[in-house]
């Protein structure tokens, strides 16, 4: 452990990695909470995988792949919103198609790039140790946008996640807000691509929020807790990966899953115990 902290003090790439993990946790905590309560993890997965198309195209034309991720994620969010509005009954099928199509387009462009030498695994599983200062600035801006939009439209977003029909009766522009939420999911996906890669995005988007849900019944508190859990998961995962030189994205996701299962088991244990105590108390009377 001391080896890790020594390296953290010495190497700016590790500091960047840690900062990237913490920045990702902010957007992740907020949007993850919406994704979990609105039950759109699958849509989020579709957006995440469609991102490879954008990254592949930008890479083909010689740009930095991360800048292709943003427009691709937003386009995927818009396509899914249209699917949701027009073809609701086939939504899962169409999202699954978009999911694979994104990967397919990405692979076609990446493999036809001259001097094909790109580390495809880096996009799929992330490479947090290669985060640059420019990446960090982009991540901070994305966090800022997510925080601002959520602060402005919190009530409306809560309303459409909770009860869409009633929100409509109260004059909320449900379709528009749904698109807005999906676009924020897209921004969060971009936040996470460098950290854990697009295949593992879903785990960091859903697991911290799902863990937080075990502790609170207020959406705002769940968001705060999910940010804290996200930060813990990212730093623990980074630390675990350092000495044995494992991919940090993978150790982060495993950390997130272990934390989630532990919390589930603990809450189940306490619930049973409380119930048993309650029954015993009733029997004594």
């Amino acid at each position: 452990m001391t080896e890790f902290f020594g390296a953290l003090a010495a190497h700016s790439f590790l500091q960047h990695a840690l900062l990237a993990g913490l920045l990702a946790s902010i957007g992740c905590g907020i949007i993850g909470a919406f994704v979990v309560v609105r039950r759109i993890s699958f849509l989020a997965g579709g957006i995440a995988h469609a991102v490879l198309a954008g990254m592949g195209i930008v890479y083909f034309f010689g740009g930095a792949p991360l800048y292709g991720a943003l427009p691709a994620a937003v386009i995927a969010a818009l396509v899914i919103a249209i699917i949701n509005r027009r073809f609701k009954q086939y939504e899962d099928t169409l999202v699954a198609a978009l999911w694979s199509l994104g990967i397919a387009i990405g692979i076609v462009f990446i493999s036809s790039t001259p001097g094909y030498s790109v580390d495809l695994l880096g996009y799929l599983f992330g490479n947090i140790l290669l985060v640059t200062e420019a990446d960090l600035i982009l991540m901070a801006i994305l966090d800022g946008v997510i925080l601002l939009v959520t602060a402005l439209y919190y009530k409306q977003l809560l309303a459409i996640c909770f009860d869409e029909e009633f929100a409509r009766v109260r004059g909320v522009r449900v379709e528009l807000l749904h698109v807005l939420l999906l676009i924020m999911v897209a921004l969060t996906v971009v936040l996470l691509v460098k950290v854990v890669g697009l295949i593992l995005v879903m785990a960091l988007l859903t697991l911290p929020a799902a863990t937080a849900m075990q502790f609170s019944r207020s959406l705002l508190k769940i968001m705060g807790l999910a940010m804290i859990f996200g930060g813990l998961i990212c730093s623990t995962g980074l630390w675990l990966s350092y000495t044995p030189d494992l991919p940090a994205g993978a150790t982060m996701v495993i950390t997130a899953a272990v934390l989630y299962v532990l919390v589930l088991l603990l809450t189940a244990f306490y619930k049973t115990r409380r119930r048993r105590q309650g029954i015993e108390e009733m029997a004594k009377r």
Binding site: V37, K155, Q156, L158, A159, C161, F162, D163, F166, A167, R170, G171, V172, M213, S216, R217, S218, L219, I222
Partner: peptide
């Protein structure tokens, strides 16, 4: 099971007015 309190649920009826 949605994480929302009774009071928050009722406040959603204020949308469009507040």
């Amino acid at each position: 099971d949605f994480p929302i309190s009774v009071e928050e649920t009722v406040m959603l009826g204020r949308l469009g007015l507040s």
